[in-house]
């Protein structure tokens, strides 16, 4: 039943979306008040934000995961950090948008820009990365660590040479999953980076960009000619779903591929 629902949604959008997809749609700028042309700037914008946010969230998330799992003993501090991470994960995305606007856009004077949007999205993705890193580290067998210590390695060496390589595939899965999540978010970028329409591609990290989810929102609710933009809306929804789908499948495949490999060893 649930799966049927999923398929109804997917099929509905795919069947209508796939008709408008062609090379030109993916690689040209919107034209004539967005009733014609492609969605290139939105695709590029989404990928920019995806990588921008990861540039910030991935290192911090992984480091933070390592610290809580490898260095901290069970204590009030650890459970405090945990619950803070959980709290951050539970904050609605629109509140992230408000926060991003207040801090990055207004207080730090970044304006609506890639950097403000990336940082906001990065904060949103942080809990996911921290959690998956912790899970990944936990699943590393304790015997590997004790073995490494027995050979005289320091804690840092053990983490770098033994623990991380084993946990890496799972951490990577977390990264990919959060990239998928970030690519679909609209509310946080609404007031921090998203542009309604830009005639040019961004040049610097202080430029605004268009993004697929916001573009879809704009296409369905604004625009001077709803009938003419409808096919483009379907196409945009299709591309967006495909990106999310590919990232999800990739994560899944990675997880399986590595778990098989580990077993074989």
């Amino acid at each position: 039943m649930v799966v049927a629902m999923l398929f109804v949604i997917l099929f509905f959008i795919c069947i209508r979306g796939i008709k408008v997809i062609n090379w030109e749609f993916l690689t040209t700028m919107p034209k004539d008040g967005m009733t014609k042309g492609g969605i290139l700037p939105a695709i590029i914008g989404t990928f920019t934000l995806m990588f921008g946010s990861m540039l910030f969230a991935f290192p911090i998330g992984v480091l933070s995961g390592i610290y809580t799992n490898e260095y901290l003993k069970e204590s009030w501090f650890k459970s405090f950090l945990r619950s803070m991470t959980n709290n951050l994960a539970g904050i609605p995305s629109i509140v992230f948008g408000l926060f991003g606007m207040a801090l990055f856009v207004n207080k730090l004077h970044f304006g609506d820009s890639i950097i403000a949007g990336s940082l906001t999205l990065g904060l949103l993705a942080l809990p996911v990365i921290i959690r998956t890193t912790e899970e990944a580290l936990k699943s590393v067998d304790m015997s590997l660590r004790t073995g490494s210590y027995a050979l005289g390695a320091t804690k840092l060496q053990t983490i770098r040479r033994v623990v991380l390589p084993v946990a890496f595939p799972n951490i990577l899965t977390g990264l990919i999953l959060s990239m998928g999540r970030v690519s679909g978010e609209t509310a946080p970028i609404l007031f921090t980076v998203a542009a309604y329409f830009l005639p040019k591609l961004p040049h610097s990290i202080f430029d605004q960009v268009m993004a697929l989810p916001y573009h879809l929102y704009v296409l369905t609710t604004s625009g001077t000619d709803i009938e003419a933009t409808r096919p483009i809306a379907y196409g945009t929804a299709f591309v967006l779903i495909m990106i999310v789908l590919i990232f999800n499948l990739m994560a899944n495949w990675l997880r399986r591929y590595f778990s098989k490999k580990v077993k074989m060893n």
């Binding site: 649930v2 999923l6 949604i9 509905f12 959008i13 999540r181 609209t186 989810p213 929102y217």
Partner: peptide, 24 residues
Amino acid sequence: ILKPLIELLAGIPSVVYGFFGLVV
């Protein structure tokens, strides 16, 4: 087979849900 599909349901962006809701 089912579990990843359900996870996928979680992955679909909310605008897409909104779009689907609006037109269907």
